[in-house]
Design a protein around this nucleic acid. Structure first.
Lengths: 223, 223
DNA sequence: TAGATTGTTAATCGATTAACAATC
DNA sequence: TAGATTGTTAATCGATTAACAATC
């Protein structure tokens, strides 16, 4: 594979990838406001980062800015979307349609930012067959079939922790290579599979740590 | 403020704080299984990290291990919980009881890991006054009153993006100093307030980036 | 040309990790 | 004592950021 026109092979640091999603969101807001050009300083401020960091991040994608001018909102949007791979259609399966799963199924942010929830799956007979926001809930027993049907490679896991690993093993065999995990367990997967974990209680615990630190500082101040 | 007995003032790196929450979860599982002692190697494996990193992390809390033996599960649990500040009761307000907010209100993981959802607030008259999982939904107009009533310092923000900043400004004035933000906007807050952001679509975009990279690698392989 | 802003360099900072002396 | 495992050191790695030459 030659890469003489596109620098897409150049390794993009993890920290940069995470921020690209933020830049893309801000660019979307700018486009809605009919803003056509933006400087690194403006975009960085809107995204909550340092402008040097933003320019460094964008430099991994190539050279799409114009010195003395800034970046074209539309060009930059396209390049970031392409780098993130959301210019191709991405079908996502959502496993576990409990409390959280239903909320995720109804979350408009997925569709508006490049993803289609193509299938809902659950193990509960009471839920299987019911309609949730335009989708029939399918039996988890049909997981392999559903994944093949929609060419799914990304799954969102919102099952109870107790079954998360079993479901993961089946997803991997079925061909899923990316998992967004909401179950509070460490998933074991082969090296070609990526897992990202969202741990809501952990987020609160991190905030709690800083609360303690602030309370101690306030005490020291007062004394 | 003197600190001759407790090293709690020693700065704990951000990356370490985030992992402490994970260690605490794993220790909870061990305690359920009546395991009393664990080595850094075992705990690290269960948490998905390198054992050197785990020992380094724990060393910021003090010296609670026993050479040649490992760590007492109960001692370590207590010390991490104390460091994270979840030995004191933490009342949390949840703002925005839409799709996601309702799911968060019903999430058992909060209570089991040290937090009480003490109040639900919303602006929608159709929701105000209704009961959700044992809580009456209060009017967002009463925000200041509710925060004071329960001594709330941590808020979970699950409102539409359009009102997130306004609500945040009121929360800050009311005395909230930590916010877990699910709205896809950058919140502006004074420096004494901590914000953590959960961006679900961004998580999928990060996975999508790696999908693209893997697809390119597979192509290069095949060719 | 003059002013503005990018893309890149290099210094700095923080996090990770292997290795091992300390010690249970 | 012998074996095991911690806590810490120091080397390495990756990310951040100020500064500025390149250039629109």
């Amino acid at each position: 594979m030659t890469a003489d026109c596109r620098p897409s092979e150049a390794r993009v640091p993890d920290a940069t990838v995470a921020r690209l999603a933020t830049y893309l969101r801000v660019l979307g807001v700018l486009r809605e406001r009919a803003v056509t050009t933006v400087s690194s300083e403006e975009l960085a401020t809107a995204a909550g980062v340092n402008s040097a960091k933003l320019r460094k991040d964008l430099s991994y994608l190539g050279s799409y800015g114009i010195r003395g001018v800034g970046y074209h909102v539309s060009t930059l949007t396209d390049e970031i979307a392409r780098t993130l791979g959301i210019t191709v259609h991405r079908s996502v399966a959502l496993i576990g349609v409990g409390n959280l799963g239903q909320a995720l199924a109804g979350y408009n942010g997925f569709a508006s930012r490049g993803f289609e929830i193509a299938a809902l799956l659950d193990a509960d007979p009471a839920r299987i067959g019911s309609m949730i926001l335009g989708h029939v809930v399918r039996d988890i027993a049909d997981l392999e079939e559903v994944v093949a049907e929609h060419g799914i490679t990304i799954a969102v896991l919102a099952t109870p922790a107790s079954v998360a690993q079993d479901v993961t093993d089946r997803l991997v065999v079925a061909g899923v290579t990316s998992i967004l995990n909401f179950a509070p367990v460490l998933l074991t997967v082969p090296s070609h599979v990526d897992v990202r974990k969202v741990d809501l209680a952990a987020e609160l615990q991190i905030l709690s740590f800083h609360e303690t630190r602030k309370a101690a500082a306030a005490l020291a101040e007062a004394q």
